[in-house]
Nucleic acid binder design. Structure first.
Lengths: 172, 172
DNA sequence: GACTCCATGTGATTATATAACGTTACCTTC
DNA sequence: GAAGGTAACGTTATATAATCACATGGAGTC
């Protein structure tokens, strides 16, 4: 297991999701949930897919597809874009990861197993991303959809702004 | 004026925003509002920018930056990507247009002058896009932001699904 | 063991977006 | 109306993101 001491030479300040968690358990919980879900659904949680999820969980921030590709290549997998895109597509399709449209980047799901209409808060200063639960059908969007007869199948909800840590730095 | 009879040889079925409007007036109203706003704010509503907005208003659908570039080139402007991106950036920055992150495409604002936290409904079958008003601070996203100390500066709210017209087709 | 299905690996290409730089137009200030 | 500053424009080049097409290989089924 790769748990507690990661080989993260990469990041800027802090990977974060605004609040501190037990990061090692994040990874094992996330992988475990995916394992279980795949077993239950008869999905093939292959080595690339598993490694891709592990990478996202380790980084704990939004990763571009090509960053993912670099990591996967380093781990001994194929080196062409489809390798990364296919793994990410699988993770997203099964709710283990999400795509942040605003950033064209991907992040591990913070609530594995939960119902899943995620909403994201993206710090424009440090690029950290936190995941919250959205309630699409409620609120003005749901009203508009009902009024026009539009059927909502999926929602993208992303807020851009400043995270508490960066706000503190700015104050100082 | 280009008003009522447009030279739209382009689109698939129907440009739409789900509901029928007086399309000719859309264009003149949109351009007029932009004109007025720019004059009031001391902004330079240059020929490229004006033409770009006119194109978006005519199309009445989300246009990719390179489609926009084609149109601008046809209209006698520069033919390199920055030409389109700069015009679109200006329009977005000043609320005359919006970027649909999900589509990497741009659409004219449907509520020129309004307060502006837009929400979009995107039909996955015909790619039509309708704009509604969102209420970011209210709802679960606002709750999460307040709880974590995140400052929201801008929101992206996009719903993907099926528009009423396409739903009808599917029924038939 | 042959078949099928799905996943993988690769090469090539398309789409989207930005960097960098010189030139031009506009608006001031004198 | 000339000098100077600023913002917009045009172009070349390049970076980043995503998909297509096709061959190979491995896991399950019969």
């Amino acid at each position: 297991m790769t748990s507690s001491i990661q080989d993260k030479q990469t990041a800027p300040g802090d990977p974060v999701g605004f609040t501190k968690h037990d990061h090692g358990s994040c990874i094992s919980v996330g992988l475990g949930a995916a394992d279980a879900h795949c077993k239950a659904q008869g999905l093939r949680f292959t080595p690339v897919r598993r490694k891709a999820l592990e990478i996202l969980l380790q980084e704990h921030r939004a990763l571009g597809a090509y960053e993912m590709l670099d990591r996967l290549r380093d781990a001994g997998f194929g080196s062409q874009p489809p390798v990364a895109y296919r793994a990410l597509e699988f993770l997203v399709a099964n709710g283990f990861a999400h795509k942040i449209e605003r950033l064209n980047a991907f992040i591990a799901c913070a609530h594995p197993g939960a119902s899943h209409s995620p909403a994201f808060m993206i710090c424009r200063l440090c690029d950290s991303v936190a995941e919250a639960q959205a309630s699409p059908a409620r609120g003005s969007l749901g009203d508009a959809a009902r009024a026009t007869g539009f059927t909502i199948e999926k929602t993208v909800v992303e807020a851009e702004g400043v995270c508490p840590a960066c706000a503190d730095k700015a104050d100082a």
